[in-house]
Nucleic acid binder design. Structure first.
Lengths: 127, 127
DNA sequence: ACTTCACTTGCATTCTGAGACAATTGTGCT
DNA sequence: AGCACAATTGTCTCAGAATGCAAGTGAAGT
């Protein structure tokens, strides 16, 4: 019996807040920046230097990411060091993947609609 | 050497579109609905019956999820059956988790800020 | 104490996105 | 062809989010 009996309930694993936080290009850029190899924590100024928006905006984005449990903040003198909560994040992503897998046994990647262009809802079958 | 040499670049693995698609409660509800054990594909009407919004809105949400490669659509007579692209989704989540883990070796879950209340950006060190 | 630097927050503006309703398209049936 | 049903799309409105600028807060140096 290599088949798990029931599927893992998804509702508890899908925090809208997290995805909403990751749904902005600038916030994604921040996350990528902080995830760079051996990058370690960075300050708001350092992160803002890489982005095309005002520092205050970056500060707000960091607040959103922090509320969503994506980042961690720690004061260090005059600066605030932001870092990725990698452990938590990885755990969430893994358990989410497990849950989806457990609920949808037919896990066949790239079966339909794998051509180049994206498909609109209406273009299910084009004439 | 159980340590990978370099970290996996995150930029390519973080599609803003996907997270934006998952950043809406109704879309999450749709995903959960479609992920229910042995649920199989469902039509727009069936999905709309579970949601407090108009059918047209559900159709649009399905379009967003489809564009984000979360769902798959297939016409079946008068109906359109929507199903979860579980394989792709699981693969994306897993490779994302791997990438984050590879970039941030200090994966210590729930280290700081793990109390009940959320923390604002300004409340790094409270007096 | 005063100044400076780093960051946060208040406020106004702009823009995106969700939602409802109506109209249209697509499919099957008689 | 004509009708009925399913789904998509057009259009409008409204709420929430992103942004910039200015003002406020906190910490360190002089």
């Amino acid at each position: 019996m290599s088949e798990p009996a029931a599927c893992i309930p998804l509702e508890k694993l899908l925090p809208t807040e997290l995805f909403k936080a990751l749904g902005d290009p600038n916030r994604i850029a921040i996350l990528c920046d902080l995830c760079e190899c051996r990058g370690g924590p960075k300050t708001v100024s350092e992160l803002a230097a890489e982005l095309p928006v005002d520092l205050s905006v970056v500060s707000r984005h960091l607040g959103v990411l922090k509320r969503a449990r994506v980042l961690d903040a720690e004061r260090n003198g005059k600066n605030v060091q932001y870092s990725v909560r990698a452990g938590d994040l990885v755990a969430i992503l893994r358990s989410l993947a497990d849950a989806i897998e457990s609920c949808c046994p037919a896990s066949k990647p790239t079966e339909t609609e794998t051509r180049t262009g994206p498909a609109e809802p209406g273009s299910v079958s084009q004439p």
